[in-house]
Computed example of a mutant assay.
Amino acid sequence: MVTRYKSISKLTVTSALFSVTLLLSACGSNSSPTNAGNAAQTPAAPATSAVSTPQPAKAEVKMETINFAYMPNMGGAAPVALGEEKGFFKEEGIKLNPVKFLSGPPEFQAMASGDIDIAYIGPGAAFLSAQGQGNIIGLVSLGKADMVLATKKSGIQEWKGLKGKTVGVPKGTSGEMVLNLGLEKAGLKPADVNIVNMDVAGAVSAYVAGKVDAVAIWSPYTVEIEKQVGKENIVKLGDNSSFYPDYSFPSSWVVSPKFLKEKPELAERFMKAMNKTTDYKISHLDEAVKLTATYTQVPEDSLKQELDSIDWIDSKKQAEVFKDGTAKKWFDNLQKLFVDTGKVQSTVPSEKFMTTEPAIKAVQP
């Protein structure tokens, strides 16, 4: 069973309370003095018989806690539900302490305060890593789950129709990123639109109630909007794929710089557990959906629809794009967008906030 945590305040319990030592039975015990004495009283075996070799004792595994920020979708929550159910974290000596978030910026705030060690983020929050607030250590997927949806009654049919309209968006997210790309495509600036910063729940409610003309948000919330208002009352202006191949949108695992500095070996163990989880998930999607639905209480059909907008990155592919520079190009291009939209003042070499060693080492025998 996976333990649910309702608030960050529960993280204040001293980590020492979670430290447990797994006592593994020592192998090769038949080399003890007692057994050796017994062996001396036993007739020698024929020269042709096989001689058993004592097996070396396994090293003890120290269980350590990782405070992990997830989002209630297939990218962020499936690893929690699946990894705990299958014991992948336990195998690596990790006690995962999962805490739910709805967007990336609050996760970075929690990392800065020491409440979160590692988090799942979408591409929109990567600008905070570029600012030095977190190191990207793993990749989850490339996606097109972020969308800008206009209401039918707004009369908006294309990007340029957003001029002068009210758009609800959680700022600092990949939803805002797609919105800004769409405005640029239409020759508009953010100042040409009445952009209202809302949390995820507020944006969904405002759209359903007709209090905004459009929202910039992602699945599974886009699926829930469709359920509530009907597909015929939604005008989809675009999603991430509208800007491919100029831009790719990777979701990733990001680690607190302090945690990475103090516990690099534990970060590598985390990536080993995540690699097991990811590869199992990709080959058992139906099971992953069921477990994630139970864990998050998000309907299975919503999670299944979310899969249509996800291109998973398995452990082998992750190591490849880290090694050959492909991932660096993805984040280099995103940084240019961050500069254009005022998220950062200037770009930095992406390798400064990408720590690839844990993921690459995690796939080595």
Rank of each mutant, 00 (worst) to 15 (best):
F89P: 02
V348Q: 11
T277D: 11
V51Q: 11
F18P: 01
A39H: 02
A125H: 11
K189Y: 00
D314F: 07
G230W: 09
A130E: 14
T341G: 02
K185M: 03
F243P: 02
P56Y: 03
L179F: 07
G76V: 10
A130Y: 10
K272E: 08
I8G: 01
S154N: 05
K100Q: 14
L142Y: 15
S241L: 13
L162C: 14
K361M: 04
K165P: 08
T53Y: 03
F331H: 06
P33H: 07
K328W: 00
L181A: 08
N97V: 07
T151V: 14
T14A: 11
L285S: 06
G210F: 12
K171W: 07
S129V: 11
L24A: 11
D192I: 05
T292G: 12
E92R: 07
T12G: 06
E92Y: 04
W253T: 00
V344F: 07
P98T: 07
V178K: 02
S309P: 01
N73G: 14
K227E: 14
F259Y: 06
H284Q: 04
A145D: 15
A59M: 09
A191R: 00
G114K: 01
Q109F: 00
V193A: 08
S15D: 13
L181I: 02
A44F: 12
L82A: 06
Q131L: 15
L181E: 04
D286V: 06
L24T: 14
T296M: 12
K317T: 04
A125M: 12
V344S: 10
A359F: 13
L337Q: 10
F18G: 01
Q335Y: 04
N333L: 02
K316Q: 11
N180K: 08
A206Y: 09
A47L: 13
A130K: 10
M71V: 07
G76E: 09
P79N: 03
V20A: 05
G155P: 10
I225Q: 11
T65R: 15
L303D: 04
P56M: 05
